[in-house]
Structure formats: C-alpha cells, structure tokens
Amino acid sequence: MNASFLTALFASGMRQGVPLIYGSVGDCVSEKAGVVGICIEGEIIFGAFFSYLFALRSGNLWLGVLMGAIAGMISSLLVAAWSIYFKQDQSIIGIMFNIFAAGFTNFLNRKIFGVSIASEKIETFKPIKIPGLSEIPVIGEVFFNQDILTYLSIVLAVITLLVMKKTKLGLQMLAVGENPKAAQASGVQVQRYRLIAYMFCGFTAGLAGASLTLSTVGSFTEVISAGRGFICLAIVILARWNPVVACIAGFGFGSIQALQLRLQIMGSVVPHQFFIALPYLITLVVLIVAGHNIRAPKELGVPFDKESR
C-alpha cells in the first residue's frame, strides 16, 4: 500500500467514475423536479453511439461530445412525453426505453458499420496536466492529470449545485418536485419545468456516453453502458440528491471498482465472484448504514395532473 499504488488506484477510480458522475448529476436535477431517471441507461447508450458516430465521421471529438449530449437529450424527449404529458408510470416507461435504446443502437450500429469490419478507432481525449496542481503528490495525479471530460464533469456538478441552491430557477425546480400544486399556484408551469429537468438529465447522460466512447474506449461496442445508468440511480440516493456529493460518490464507486480489480490481481483465496460483487455490496451497505433518514423529493415519480385537486 504505497503512494504509487494509491495514486494508480484513485486515478483509475476517477476515470471509471466520470460516466457515473455525468449520469448522476443529471438525475439529481430530474429527481429533484419529481421525475425518476430510470431511462439514464438507455440515454447513455444513445450518447455513446452518436458521439462515436459523429466524432469518427467528422474527425472532431468536440462535435462528437456535443452530438452525443444532444442525442441523449432528444431521446429523453421520448420518455418525457410519456411520463410527463401522458402521465404514465415513469419506471415502466424508463425500462421500456432502455430496451428500445439497446436494440435501436445495435440496429443502427449494424446498418452503418456492419458486423464483420473491425470497428474503426478514434483518437481519444488525452490527459491534460494542470500546471502546478498536478505536482501535488497523489492528489495531483488523481485529479489534475485527467482528460478534459473529467474536469468538465466536476465543474458541471458544482455549477448544478449552485444553480439548484442559489437561483430562482433552482428553487422553482425544487418546488415542482416537493409540492407541484403550490408551485402551480404561484405561477410555475410544472410540466414545463419537469420537461426541462428531464432534458438536462438526458443531456448529461449523453455526456456520460460520450465519455465512454471518446475518452475511454475509442470505439462503440453494443450495450457499452453495461449497467452504469442503474448505478447512477443508487448514487443519487446515496448523495441525497446533491450533485457535488454525487460527484464524490461516483468517484468512490469507481475507486471501489478499481480496488476490486487490483485485489483480484494481487491474488487471494477468496473466489472472484466476491470481488465482482464488491462494489455493489459496498453500495448496499452504505445505503443501509447512511440511509436511515433519507428523504426523497415528495412528489418523486408521481405524474402531475394540472386539473386534479
């Protein structure tokens, strides 16, 4: 357990945490406004596919990032239409959407790239050393020698928190999730606010997908999200709907994942199944230990009907 081991461990944790941070920051906002983001998983896949497609065809990574985020946002409209305007059960719509997203991106992937050609690689985002800060032992390497999408994810979390806590827009969002009737009475258009929150969630989930293809893998493989969207949901509850805490929790989850890989490498008599389950086990334990007085937004998951009493 020396410094270089810890540095490598947490640097890997940070890299693995980035998609989780993007996904959970967006979900914090949408859940605060009263809509559950079960659909993040599917939006990540959409984001991953379209960011790869556009980055590959245009040769511009930033266009890829933008189109990935927009793809996530547009796909979220589909879910939003059903859950906000047609007032259907958000979880069921979300699960249906995830199945649709996996199938639809597979379909596009095969139509565009075929099944037999070696997938074309793109040059991924490279780590950028932040002068000065990256010289700090351990912390410098972990937090200040990462690629640009990592820095953006942290900035996004901080800005989101500030907007939610300090601005009128943020407070109105909270009201929409806590007491939509009161919000409506004070002139807030509940459904419009929920739509905006949902779109923001789709936007960040798209970024999460982009970070998978454009900063980690360099290509798209089918169902690349591999369950990360669901981890985001747990992180949001753990973080009590606070984007900055979610950022830390995402980093924590990534680090435990990095740790279990390293524990396997060190070799032990413990079966590998235990290590594979470890990140999820710890998430569960933390939820039980630290979650005794978690209070979700009051109207979370409840469709709002303007005309109801």
């Binding site: 890299r15 998609p19 290509s219 493989t221 690349i224 890989l261 396997q264 590998h272």
Partner: peptide
C-alpha cells in the same frame, strides 16, 4: 482477473 462481464469494454481497459 475475472471481470464478470463480456460486454463492458471500458472495464476491460481499466
């Protein structure tokens, strides 16, 4: 290392 998944390219890389 047994990753427990055949589909997670990013995890394979890490």
């Amino acid at each position: 290392v047994i990753t427990g998944t055949f589909d997670d390219t990013a995890l394979g890389k890490e």
